[in-house]
Nucleic acid binder design. Sequence first.
DNA 1: ATATTTAATCGAACAGTGTTTAAAAATATA
DNA 2: TATATTTTTAAACACTGTTCGATTAAATAT
Lengths: 216, 216
Amino acid sequence: MTIEKRREREIEEMKERILLAASDIVALEGVEKLSIRKIAKKIEYSPSIIYHYFKDKEEILNNVMQRGYKKIVSAVSSVKIESNSPEERLIQMTKNYIKAALNMPDEFIAVQLNQSKSALKHTSSLFKGASKEKTALSVLYQCLQEIYKDRNIDENIIELTAQMIVVSTLGLVFKLIIEKDIGDEQRERLINFYSKEIVLRIANSNTLNDGKEEKN
Amino acid sequence: MTIEKRREREIEEMKERILLAASDIVALEGVEKLSIRKIAKKIEYSPSIIYHYFKDKEEILNNVMQRGYKKIVSAVSSVKIESNSPEERLIQMTKNYIKAALNMPDEFIAVQLNQSKSALKHTSSLFKGASKEKTALSVLYQCLQEIYKDRNIDENIIELTAQMIVVSTLGLVFKLIIEKDIGDEQRERLINFYSKEIVLRIANSNTLNDGKEEKN
DNA sequence: ATATTTAATCGAACAGTGTTTAAAAATATA
DNA sequence: TATATTTTTAAACACTGTTCGATTAAATAT
């Protein structure tokens, strides 16, 4: 029993070593420079050994990316949001999400792009009407419900609206990552405008100021 | 003179042949399966010849993708929009854009992702306050100006709003491309909801219906 | 403690990749 | 026709992911 558990632990340690080396390379040289042979050299093993612990190079990459994305998710959900107004909570959440994503741009894009062809089903199911159950999306959904609570709005609409917020935020993050040469002030300005203005507009067309009172 | 022009034409023809073969492979097997040697085999030349007409594999890929994207742009701009209401024009434009993009998903994503590190500067400058001058964006900008014409809204806000519409639409398109396994009805539903509801909410919080009158 | 079974590790090879270089073939110029 | 130029190629380099059979190390059984 003890010996089996040690084996298991050793396997896990080896996997960890491989994944750590891979993460290192990705962080230092970029995703496209990652290679099995480089990992092998880094952990001081032969390249072929890696295939005893992972099926593919893709499986390794998936793990690396998934970890990056988990950091984003936890960075967002760890932030305590003090405000009682659901609108302000929404703003705060959005900002957190964007900034966390921008801190690991490669992982973010990779995870988003790979989620269909790989086994990353934990961020998927976005479009399957599951936003109520999703941990990450549930907060968003609750915010919307609070915003709408006085009015009588179809649950489907809330669901759709939540998805739309996610999707449009995704778009902004993508653009901010892709267009690397935006200045820091402009980046901040866009994030601010989006979080304070756009998200609320998407969420709700009534509880808005009418376009006056804009400050950067 | 005549002979020089023929040379030039022949060079252009060769480039065209290479690009066409590359497009073929990309369309048939996907971007990641494209290789110099495959192109060479397809055009019945040696692999090395390609480097006399293109600097890189990347240069070839850029050309292929750029063409794909141009098709999207022209597909969108060729559609005559009959409505006089700027809001309805906005809806129509958005739908056209999304559907055109979904017809060449690979090219769309590739162009968007590569625009920073390659020479595709024609879709860039999105964040440099240039949306007034951009052909593609100018229509969008005009729509917004019409929508806002009775009110007194800062040009900067119009600019920002235009960018936000572009960016959030981008997000939706990305998600629709990535999540390949959405049913056709659901895809249609999302596009509809986004075009009819969300874009108008982003554009303007006043000229909206208050959440009633929802139909799928 | 020795023999046997099982698991971990490696070296070599396969088939592929992008790219460079020097030689060869084809074309244009004098 | 001879020379210069351009187009095309074959071969090589340095990589890549992956597989397979042999080798070494560890665990189990005798």
